[in-house]
Design a protein around this nucleic acid. Structure first.
Lengths: 192, 192
DNA sequence: CGATTCTTTGAAAACAGTCAATCTGTGTGG
DNA sequence: CCACACAGATTGACTGTTTTCAAAGAATCG
């Protein structure tokens, strides 16, 4: 399972065999079945998770029981609740598997040690954070400036892979609309 | 003007006088009048800006001429277009002054040098990035999961300072609603 | 096949946006 | 100091979009 991660790393940075072996020592593995939780609301997030295989989502559940998906993470992405991870507070989010998934986990403290020992690794992680930041910024911008229809089409254009692997109702949740609205945007037959 | 920044730094990390002097060497200063641009759509963002005094905003303008504010930055906050700064692409956003403001600017490359030379400074900047990330994440979550009314009340609760310094129409823009809608939420007289 | 789960459709109600007019407060120049 | 212009905020009537609730249709999986 570490092989996927190794490829990911080698595609982004240069590491010697010793350095890779060093990282591997800290890796923990977890296989999740569909719908299985990685993190549940109220838990304190203590690990960085790399998705080696599969598809995950992070979401909250409101008082009415509706789910609101804040992000998806497929192979070669990281997922965790950064807020909880950094602050040590209980998480407001759930993270579970949309598809059966293989994860590589790193304990927060050990992860920090790796970052400290291997500057290129640290650089990679900072890059990931920067990218995620920009993704969220774009999403905020889209949320406040576009109609439901534009949100849907932008999503399809930007994430065609997800549109095939994620149930429609979850895409609707991610975009902040109801499944019914999304369905109507897809089939504008009733449209004048 | 560097004094404000010095206080900011000393409140967060420990630096010797030499280190502070080292940082100061790279600082550039800019005073902006109300409504003056720091960055205009199409420009390439090449500097990190620290707000020593005043209040700034970042926003886009759509085809219809409507403005969409992605963030505010008051004293002791950083503002730039991170996307443009990192990628070197022309910015899709404008940054201008809501109030007359004093800024401290650092050229991207020189900023990176400082980060490299002073690990504590780098740590501080990483922290800022982490915090901003969490703020955007919360905002995405709020955008997809709450009504206009909740957005407004959450904003007032979370940012009482801004509610006094920012014109209402800009708050509406930040929250993704029209000024009229925001006004009606404030004065629910017509409400049953 | 039977049982979930997911998607579509319909009709009504709630909500937010648009356009236009009025109101308020501020600051400027005469 | 007043009058006027200007920007910002409010209000009203109307339109359009999205949600809600309910029910019926696909699709998927054991």
């Amino acid at each position: 399972m570490f092989d996927n991660f190794k490829e990911y790393l080698q595609g982004k940075i240069t590491l010697s065999e010793e350095e890779l072996a060093y990282i591997e020592k800290f890796a923990r593995y977890k296989k999740l079945r569909k719908k299985q939780y990685l993190l549940q609301e109220g838990d304190i997030c203590k690990q960085h998770a790399f998705v080696a295989k599969g598809l995950m989502r992070a979401y909250s559940v409101d008082e009415k029981g509706s789910e609101h998906i804040t992000r998806f993470a497929r192979e070669d992405w990281w997922i965790s609740d950064r807020e909880s991870l950094l602050s040590g507070h209980p998480s407001r989010f759930n993270i579970d598997a949309i598809e059966a998934s293989d994860l590589i986990l790193f304990d927060k403290d050990e992860f920090d040690v790796i970052c400290q020992k291997l500057p290129v690794f640290n650089q990679l992680i900072t890059n990931v954070l920067n990218k995620s930041f920009v993704v969220y910024q774009d999403r905020v911008h889209e949320a406040i400036s576009t109609t439901a229809d534009e949100k849907y089409h932008n999503f399809m254009r930007r994430y065609p892979e997800y549109s095939l692997r994620v149930p429609q109702a979850m895409i609707a949740s991610y975009l902040g609309m109801t499944p019914e609205t999304l369905s109507r945007l897809r089939n504008p037959k009733s449209k004048k």
